[in-house]
Design a protein around this nucleic acid. Structure first.
Length: 276
DNA sequence: ATGGTGGTGCGACCA
């Protein structure tokens, strides 16, 4: 089974590029981020005609995630659980950033979480250097804490799962062409990286690093200043795998070539092949 | 070096 993650930066602008890549790459399941569309406006039938089931979790103008699958999906859920505020504060879930479903085959099933982690910029700190409550950076870190709790809950179920998407997170210096330029950025700051490291230390495997040790392996290049031509990129789209899922991992690749095509997203797809 | 580009949806806001 081939499973991919792709931040498309707007379904309306990317319908051609996404369709072309689906035909070339033939993934069985794709999690999409930044569909920037409400559910009603997502071109569902277009992708159904290409052989995919479509499940969306959209919102107007910003964010929005989706799952496309050639295989049957079960138990689709939208939004990340919010244990701290369950039933009391819906504000944390206004932004559509998480969708999850189980994909079933003859050999077994796999739970797939598709996520669009908050960017977190600008970084607003108080006099003590702590993120100001209610700021974008605070929202990012709190969202990461919720993701951590959710991953913990999934691990206790002992079911193979993956968490794939745009993490808006540069894990290490080697994941940026110019790491020094990112030192105060929410994508690379200490608090963000620490939260990511803690998530991994639950026992999750970074699929790309498990299969690929090549330097300068990026998934995002800014549209400005010819960033792609200079390979001035960052690795922020990740596929994390539970121990049971990681045992099935066969390959992990990044489809860099899509960034050189007409009307590209600023991100490129990352995919895994698993023995399922 | 100041978002310089690009997306959404029609005025800003987001990345």
């Amino acid at each position: 089974m081939k499973i991919a993650s792709f931040n498309i930066n707007g379904i309306k602008a990317r319908i051609e590029a996404l369709s072309e890549w689906l035909k070339e790459a033939e993934p069985d399941v794709v999690v999409l981020q930044e569909i920037k569309s409400i559910d009603e406006n997502f071109p569902k039938s277009h992708f159904e005609d290409l052989g995919y089931i479509v499940e969306t979790h959209g919102q107007k103008s910003f964010n929005g995630v989706a799952i496309l699958s050639r295989l049957p999906l079960e138990d689709v859920s939208r939004g990340l659980p919010n244990p701290e505020n369950a039933g009391r504060d819906e504000a944390d879930d206004i932004e559509a950033r998480y969708i999850e479903a189980t994909v079933c085959t003859d050999k077994g099933s796999l739970r797939i979480g598709g996520l669009y982690l908050p960017n977190g910029n600008p970084v607003d700190l108080d006099q003590n250097g702590k993120p100001i409550v209610g700021s974008k950076y605070d929202y990012k870190l709190k969202w990461m804490a919720r993701l951590h709790q959710h991953a913990q809950a999934l691990l206790t179920e002992e079911q193979p799962f993956i968490l794939a998407g745009d993490y808006n997170l540069i894990p290490q210096e080697e994941d940026a062409k110019h790491p020094e330029k990112w030192s105060d950025d929410a994508l690379f700051r200490m608090e963000s990286r620490e939260a990511y490291r803690k998530l991994l230390s639950l026992g999750l495997t970074d699929a790309l690093r498990a299969r690929n040790a090549e330097p300068e392996t990026f998934t995002f290049w800014d549209y400005q200043r010819g960033a792609f031509d200079k390979n001035n990129g960052i690795r922020i789209d990740h596929v994390l795998m539970s121990p049971q899922a990681a045992d099935l991992l066969l390959d992990c690749q990044i489809d860099v070539y899509t960034r050189a095509k007409a009307k590209p997203s600023d991100h490129v797809p990352i995919w895994i092949q698993i023995d399922l």
